[in-house]
Amino acid sequence: MKISHECGPCFLRQAGEALDLATDNSELKIEIFNEIFNFLAGNFSTNTNSNKTGSTIHKIIKERTGCKDPYKKEKVLGNKIALKYLPQVKTIIEEEDSLENYVKIAIIGNILDFGAFTLNTDIDELINNALQKQLKINHVESLEQSAKKHDKLLYLVDNTGEIVFDKLLLEKLKSYGLDITIAVKSEPILNDACMEDALAVGLDKYGDIVEIGAGTVGYVDSEISDDFRKIFNDHKFIISKGMGNYEGLTEIDTSDKELYFLLCSKCHAISKDMGVDLQDMVLLKNH
């Protein structure tokens, strides 16, 4: 996707969050914000790639503060809390063992902010309510056909915390006899899952974990490694989690692949692009 005018406030909100996590130095924060303002002033146009712009902003923050992983504590906490609730989620989903419910659980993981939970959070109610909600775009029948037709799958994960819920969908997909490759970021960016985060929750039980060769917001085709490009090109069946990967993958030609986007739309620009409302859950096959 290209930049929308609505991306501007989002870039700045996210930059402020990352800066607060990276440093307590108020004067440095102002200096960095000025650098970000100048960067956006020269790179904010209708032809600009939103993922690459966001990635550059976070690169500025990490380099100027010296903090290579501002979200490190949040990522660890997110995985820890999600793992705590995993047995409960399994019990819920076993009552209706359909592929669609496993897809919903994976998308619910994309919705929930595990790091924000307290002991009083009723996650059981949150999950049950979401399971009752219909997918706004529902290509689950096509997904099942793809799972039966292909012998291998590339699964692009998104954030920590939600990767714990991805395990359930991966286990379900593995039952179709698929050889699964799981792609993570090579360097920290936001709360996206890297190799150590994936290994910490046992994602390697469900497939081979590979790095994309970059630490970018979502998927940025110009930044991935040659090794990952070979893997990507070699797969005809791909599942992509989250908005960032949707933004990046819709920028390239994937007409030779059966590519499925699993996400909850949490911004107006993506909602408009997909033709859905905010907070709608989507399982969309590329066309």
Rank of each mutant, 00 (worst) to 15 (best):
L259K: 03
E247P: 08
G248D: 01
C267D: 00
K241H: 11
A269G: 02
K230V: 10
D208T: 15
Y219M: 13
E223S: 13
I239G: 03
D208C: 05
C267K: 02
D227F: 05
K257D: 10
D197C: 06
S222C: 01
S240C: 03
I212D: 00
C264K: 11
G213M: 06
L259T: 06
F237K: 02
D197L: 03
A269E: 09
Y206R: 09
K241S: 09
L263M: 14
G218V: 08
N233L: 13
N233M: 10
V217G: 05
R229E: 15
N233V: 05
G275M: 10
V276R: 12
D253Y: 02
D273P: 04
S255M: 13
Y260H: 01
L249M: 10
S240N: 04
G242F: 02
M274G: 06
G213Y: 04
K241C: 10
L199T: 12
E247V: 03
K272A: 15
L203S: 12
K257N: 12
D227Q: 12
H235Q: 08
S222R: 08
E196V: 13
C267I: 00
F261G: 06
E258N: 11
Y260T: 03
D208E: 15
I231K: 02
D256N: 15
K230S: 14
L259C: 02
T254F: 08
I238F: 01
I239M: 08
F228L: 02
V276K: 11
E223V: 04
G207A: 06
K230H: 09
K205S: 14
F228R: 05
E196D: 14
D226Q: 14
A198N: 11
D226V: 10
L262F: 14
G218Y: 04
C267S: 00
T216Q: 02
H268E: 10
M274P: 03
I212E: 08
I209T: 10
V210E: 11
I224A: 05
V276L: 13
G248S: 01
R229K: 15
K257Q: 14
S271C: 15
D227T: 13
E196I: 12
I239E: 04
I239S: 06
G218R: 06
Y246H: 12
E211V: 09
M243Y: 08
S222E: 15
N245R: 08
V217C: 12
L259R: 00
K205R: 15
G248L: 04
